[in-house]
Design a protein around this nucleic acid. Structure first.
Length: 285
DNA sequence: TGCCAGGGCCAAG
DNA sequence: CTTGGCCATGGC
């Protein structure tokens, strides 16, 4: 196992970062996280400012976990009220990490209208069915399948991954992306709203999935995915009761209110969603 | 067992 | 541009 030492100005919380629901291929067993990124299996463990890791070099770890984000500065910029402040104190050190674009796109299509344990299970099945097999000390593990490994396959094989009605989306997106190798580079170069529209041309990609892909796959930290939890939180704490609350209204409010790192605010609120929602339901207005 | 979940699509209004 | 029904599946 290698190790690296984080500096005092590099706050990082491995458990919050990998456990907050932004990635789906990491598991925590006894304090050590095991995940598959690309075709490698990585293990990471945190002890204070020290990170122990194997399966990748230090540069990869620092880049993947976005240790270069000025998180202290980002949190200071979004810490604008007691609600977000509580969320920040609950998981300070949570970082929005750099996911591979294709895996991110496919994963968040699979993530629609279901729950996080189910998402992880389905993605695991998809990888076992279509991914390339590698071995870690004799134990097989599977990479996230590239679009060409899925494209052209029978829809029923995707159905076997419990994808339900999302199966045709994954099939069609795989075909579309396979024929458009530069799609990610194209999106990377586009201004935010154009990149968003471009993503929404993919079948199975609406506003919410597009915002997730922009935030988690393209490092557009101003993106604010609005799922039912975020909508609930903004309804309860941020927007005047009785006003119309559509997706765009909430998203634009969040972006204006929290600024260029609104995506970080969204993720901290999402992490605190249960306590915030519970408090909202039980307590008086 | 019924309700809910990191929604998108499509047809109507 | 907004609304409502529908979609497969499994966790709780």
């Amino acid at each position: 196992m290698q190790s690296l030492e984080l500096e005092a100005w590099e706050p990082f919380d491995l458990d919050a970062t990998l456990g907050c629901g932004q990635v789906f291929r990491w598991e925590n067993t006894g304090g050590t996280w095991t995940g598959i990124v690309g075709d490698r299996l990585i293990r990471v463990r945190q002890a204070g400012r020290c990170l122990f890791f194997e399966g990748a070099d230090e540069a990869f770890i620092r880049h993947y976990f976005a240790i270069d984000h000025d998180l202290a500065g980002i949190l200071e910029s979004i810490d604008r009220d007691p609600v977000i402040h509580q969320a920040i104190e609950g998981c300070r050190g949570l970082r929005i990490i750099r996911q591979p674009p294709w895996e991110c796109l496919a994963s968040y299509i699979i993530a629609t209208f279901t729950n996080i344990p189910s998402i992880k299970r389905r993605i695991g099945l998809l990888c076992r069915e279509f991914g390339e097999v590698n071995f870690d000390e004799g134990v097989p593990y599977y990479s996230f399948p590239g679009p060409d490994r899925i494209a052209g396959s029978e829809e029923c094989r995707l159905r076997s991954c419990s994808l339900g009605y999302r199966a045709p989306y994954i099939c069609r997106v795989s075909n579309a992306v396979r024929l458009d190798r530069g799609w990610a580079d194209e999106i990377r170069e586009l201004p935010f709203n154009y990149a968003r529209k471009r993503l929404m041309e993919f079948p199975g990609v609406g506003r919410k999935v597009a915002d997730c892909v922009l935030l988690f796959g393209f490092e557009r930290l101003e993106a604010v995915p609005v799922d039912v939890w975020i909508e609930r939180i903004f309804r309860e704490y941020y927007l005047d009761p009785g006003t119309k609350v559509g997706y765009e209204r909430i998203r634009q409010y969040a972006q204006e209110y929290f600024g260029p790192y609104a995506g970080y605010a969204q993720e901290y609120l999402f992490w605190a969603r249960e306590s915030l929602a519970k408090k909202g339901r039980a307590g008086p207005k």
